[in-house]
Amino acid sequence: MKKEDLNNIKKPGFKIPEGYFRTFEEQLNERIKLEDAVFNTKQTGFSVPENYFNSVEDNIISHLPKTKNNVSVISINSRRSLYYISGIAASLLLLFAIFTNKEEPLELSVDMVESYFESQDINSYELAELLVDIELIDDDFTITKNTYDEVNLETYLLDNADLDAFLE
């Protein structure tokens, strides 16, 4: 490029959008206003419930671990602890249920058997049929084995005159 040519260039060749200088001032003012508003507020806008700072102290104190006995305190809110405690409790209950819940064989009283026969209206034929069908053996027939001896039987027969009707 010749020196003469360089001196002749009076414009850099840049262009600007139409009406740029007319709107520039306006835009700049708006931005200054916004930034002023934002950067001078120094306030977050956050608020707290009424009397919060008065009550929060007691709240915190009530959650402090007790140091008197040097007992380490596990937060009761801890879900994991809750799961552990629940698990242990459930296991203990299960074990307790298994080892204590041994069902005792039901002891039938004479009165119970008698009232059963009466209420079911079972006649002697049906009773005899039942005894044949099941083929009861002495060991299984715990009622007679455990609760009847000869004296009892005799007393029973004497006290129940209507037994004849039953044996017909």
Partner: peptide, 26 residues
């Protein structure tokens, strides 16, 4: 315990606002 109460009085608000700006909700 009494010293801790004094500490609470001194710092509860400053620490609250520091935390609040981070976690946003009260």
């Amino acid at each position: 315990e009494s010293a801790f109460r004094d500490l609470l009085k001194l710092y509860k608000e400053r620490l609250y606002w520091h935390i609040r700006k981070m976690v946003i909700s009260h």
